[in-house]
Amino acid sequence: MLETIWFLLWGILWAVYFMLDGFDLGLGTLMPVLAKNETERRIVYRVMGPFWDGNEVWLITAGGVTFAAFPTTYAAMFSGLYSALMLILFALIIRGVSFAFRDEVHTPGWKRFWDVCLTIGSFLPALLLGVAFANIFQGLPYDKDFVYQGTLFTLLNPYGIAGGVLFVLLFLVHGSLWLAVKSEGELQARAGKMVSKLWAALLVVAVIFLLATRRQTFLYDNYTANPVLFLIPLLAVLALIATRLFIAKAAWWKAWFASSTTIVAVTLFGVVGLYPKLLPSSLDPAFSLTIANSSSSPLTLKIMLVVALTFVPLVIAYQVWVHYLFRHKSTAEDLEEGEIY
């Protein structure tokens, strides 16, 4: 029971991470296309500025919870996906400092350099997290000692790449919606136009991915066993359609929430399909890491549950407050405000 609760919390943490960091990873990737001049680029940075770091802590927490609740999975997953994770890590490093460093020196070359870091550093994690999760859904070559028998290129199979493209598109839509919410005028119009095109591409890839999932993975087994669970993928589909409807009405906040729902539902669709496995083995189902053979002791799970149920709501409360505090749109005038970044 405890293991199952933690499995769900584990999935929810990843889902929340994708929903939150998704918009700034997506927007960081799109910045060269959306922002046409220095003022617009600074606005793009500004609409992410107060939030991106708080969002990224959800990744730390998701990683930390994998370590705390399912240490054997954490060990097998992080050492197995070594190269992919290191690439994500380096990307997050150059991206993270670009926020702090970019406006410290006022030469175009300096700024361009950090803009490139932001874009690469946003795109790579989006892509690789998608590739990694699709491969987890599909199963990875883990042997009986939970040692990974593949390489980085094992991950780059068609289904894995489809997962990567899906994540990138989900985040691009999410990020352009965020810019549409947070900006005005031309920039907002450009984001709005962009998101319509991106949505169409996302729809195509999402359909392909859902169909391929049927062929490539066992995820649907849980759903056919408990048809009521089909509500989760149904929610994903409805939220995706709602996103489009709200985009058509230029109801940006609503579209952003619909897009958030899509990301969460897509993640949960995968996670619920995985249950009770965390890391299925493609060599032999018996070599899979599950909640039974990889979780922490009941005492640790209990303590962690108390900590999580006490403090995560608090975190959510103050992060929501921060969104309320910085609820304004960012404009050129806004950039002149006294801050010290």
Binding site: G64, F67, A68, A69, A75, S296, T300, F311
Partner: peptide
């Protein structure tokens, strides 16, 4: 990580959360 995650991992997770 596998050997001590039960203890060490939970402290790291608490650090992130708190």
């Amino acid at each position: 990580s596998r050997y001590v995650g039960d203890i060490f991992g939970s402290i790291l997770a608490i650090e992130a959360t708190l």
